[in-house]
Amino acid sequence: MSRAEIVRRARAVELLVFDVDGVLTDGGLYYDENGQYAKRFDVQDGLGIKAAQAVGLHIGVITGLDSKAVANRVNELEIDEYVAGRVEKSTAFEALCERHGVAPYQAAYVGDDWVDIGPMRMAGLPMAVPNAQPEVLQVAAHVLSRPGGRGAVREAIRLVLFCKGCLDGELESWRKGMALAKAASRRLNR
């Protein structure tokens, strides 16, 4: 797909939907001696999600597993939509689009494995992490350079914000917010 076509599709995006294992996380399951498992999330991905929300984009997460760790992270980031325990993701993706009044061509979907192919085929901007399964890479309009759990979500969001012309403005908002926070801290510490 041409760069111009990717830009055109990214400009239309109003809803960003992410898989969890292999996209929001590195795909690893870390088990402790009691059989409980944990997941690792990238803090930069979280800030990217907050930036997307700040410009009015909706965020959705669809995952095949039902994990308390994921539910906690989704809740912490105030993500609009969380669908857990769904291996068949196409109907969940359609429902997310309907709930937000977004046509599938106005949605981006980032996946890595076979269960993501259905919604990726429906999305206007299907993206994949670089270590995705070969069949997923074939469906992707854009392959990210960062792996899952290591900045892929942030990269996808940056692409959409850049193409929509929002990236510089959002960065400036964060800079101003940090400057105000530092000034307030200095006043409190006097």
Rank of each mutant, 00 (worst) to 15 (best):
V102D: 06
P119R: 11
K68E: 13
K68Q: 14
A123S: 13
H58L: 01
V143A: 00
P130K: 04
M127Q: 12
Y37C: 07
A69I: 02
L167C: 05
K50N: 04
A92M: 10
G60Q: 08
S67M: 03
A84G: 14
D66H: 12
K39I: 01
L137S: 01
V102I: 11
G48Q: 02
G64H: 08
V83E: 10
G46Y: 05
V102N: 04
P104H: 04
V83F: 13
E76M: 09
V160C: 14
M127L: 15
L137A: 01
L77E: 06
R154I: 10
I117A: 09
A108M: 10
R154Y: 07
V87A: 11
R158D: 15
A103D: 15
I117M: 10
L57M: 04
P147T: 13
C166H: 12
D32V: 04
N131W: 07
V83N: 03
L65C: 00
M127P: 08
A52K: 02
G148E: 02
Q133L: 11
V143W: 00
D32A: 05
Y37H: 08
V115Q: 08
Y109W: 11
E94N: 12
S90H: 03
I59W: 09
H142K: 04
A156H: 02
V83I: 13
G85E: 14
V74Q: 00
F162W: 13
M120V: 03
H142C: 02
G148P: 13
R40H: 08
M127Y: 08
Q36Y: 10
E98Q: 14
K39M: 01
E88G: 06
V70G: 09
I59M: 10
Q106V: 03
R99Q: 13
V115A: 12
N72C: 12
D45G: 03
G60N: 08
V74N: 00
A38I: 02
D45F: 12
A152G: 01
G111S: 09
V110M: 05
V70I: 09
G111V: 09
V143M: 00
P130Q: 07
L47A: 09
Y82S: 14
Y105E: 15
I49A: 03
A141H: 15
A107T: 10
G56Q: 09
A69T: 12
Y105P: 01
H100F: 15
N34R: 15
V129P: 02
L47K: 12
P119L: 11
D45W: 10
Q106H: 15
N75G: 12
G35M: 14
R73F: 12
I49L: 06
Y109Q: 03
L65W: 06
I62N: 06
Q44Y: 11
A107E: 13
L137F: 04
G56T: 07
V139K: 01
G60K: 09
